[in-house]
């Protein structure tokens, strides 16, 4: 990952700071700030956590504790396209495990590790609340796929390779 000196990063930090300034007087905004930070950087590096801690005047240990407590936050870079497979019971009984197996096979990676080109990573997630469409796969934050069969997996991956 590029260092903080990188031009793009400075811009992102500026954007993060303007968000922090708009909310920092409200009590307990740490989680909302981390949401924003992860949205901007893709993950929460030690540097980013330190930055947030300083800006909010909180001990780094508290920031780190919160980051590692919640599923949503990641301290490691993920693939450019994160493929999340719901393993909630409703999806599981509709064959989510077979979809997950096929994904691992197609991309040649295990859970939570990015592919060599950094394009994809696979994650198992808890119930996504779209149980009528089980099994559900989510790519990135908003691209949902419902009633996914193992055979459809390659088609879904293909879609993001083109980009």
């Amino acid at each position: 990952m590029p260092s903080s000196k990188c031009e793009g990063h400075e811009k992102l930090y500026a954007e993060l700071d303007s968000y922090i300034n708009s909310v920092k007087d409200q009590p307990g905004v740490l989680i909302n700030v981390l949401h924003r930070a992860q949205e901007l950087f893709g993950y929460l590096s030690e540097e980013t956590q330190q930055h947030v801690a300083e800006k909010l005047n909180l001990p780094l240990s508290q920031v780190y504790g919160v980051v590692t407590f919640y599923n949503f936050f990641s301290t490691k870079p993920k693939g450019k396209h994160q493929i999340k497979v719901c393993l909630g019971t409703a999806c599981y009984v509709k064959g989510a495990d077979r979809v997950l197996d096929r994904l691992k096979e197609e991309l040649g990676v295990d859970l939570d590790e990015p592919t060599k080109d950094g394009d994809f990573s696979i994650h198992a997630v808890r119930c996504l609340g779209a149980c009528s469409m089980a099994p559900v796969v989510l790519v990135g934050e908003r691209d949902f796929y419902g009633k996914v069969t193992p055979d459809e997996v390659s088609k879904i991956i293909e879609k993001y390779k083109e980009e």
């Binding site: 119930c127 609340g129 779209a130 149980c131």
Partner: peptide, 11 residues
Amino acid sequence: DEGEPGTFKDR
């Protein structure tokens, strides 16, 4: 914070 697997009513 609906997180009960199988529940999607609140949403």
